[in-house]
Design a protein around this nucleic acid. Sequence first.
DNA 1: AGAATAACCTGCGTGC
DNA 2: TGCACGCAGGTTATTC
Length: 299
Amino acid sequence: MPELPEVECLVRALKKTVETRLVTKATFLREDLRYPIPVQALQEALEGEMIQAVTRRSKFMLWETKKGFAVFHLGMSGNIFQETSPIPKRPHTHAVFEIAGVRPTYLHYVDPRRFGIIDLCPRETLATYRFFSSLGPEPLGKKDLWAHLYEKSRGRKVPVKVFVMNATIVVGVGNIYASEALFRAGLHPLCPADSLSQEDCQRLAKAIQDTLAQAIRAGGTTFRDYRHTDGTSGEFRMQLAVYDKEGEPCLHCETPVAAIRLTGRSTFFCTQCQPKRRKTSSKSPQKLRPKKSKKRSKS
DNA sequence: AGAATAACCTGCGTGC
DNA sequence: TGCACGCAGGTTATTC
């Protein structure tokens, strides 16, 4: 579930739940996910401590106490659910955090594939922290993102889709939003990064920022899920133009959406709106038409 | 150095 | 109904 918008929504929700509140207990049901979990150190940093702030860096969520930062990554399949009981109700619940309150809240960290990360970053080492030290800038609020993209793309032959998904270039652009942003920018996913003009980078930067901001406004998908007792995703859907729409008509020109694989990842685009070689001032898609209700049955 | 590939895991849908 | 297979929203490690 988690790309940047979903993590951002989770962070905003947890701000309300845990910020300025006390962690009374941190329970770990296993000692490793993608990496070993520093259980002792985390309990030391969290139990009996107040969460001063819940923040996000890239797709990581941080809980700050006076002792350091508890760091969470949800990997591909992770989520955090708010419960009223500490008893795990879902398979693959790996950690439970008890948050003090009139009625305590229990945050359940669940991650079936265990690609996630739970770690502790000591306060004084945040600057050199292993997971953060090589990250590119946050796309939202980055003033001249386009210039950054232009500069970083010089001499890089990789397809632009691979380029924008590279977290050392810019963080937070996952597989879904990469396809979506390229569609909005009118750029073919295979277009070599260093062939982008300044104008291309301007459209690309705006497309990335608009797409992510809009997805955040839409509430993402992940945190909505925690309301569903059965854990299914329910009706909430992101407003996607091309992702997972192979064969469906493009929202602009009705050409069937094409699908290819790029470094093992599904990639969707419109051959018409995202031509391999664009004419100099071809009009590119800027705004989406309202989405028609879609009734794909998934029985 | 940049670029491509493998690896980490479980669950689910599909096709035979 | 069962089973093999491919694929899934991410990131790092390894190899070329």
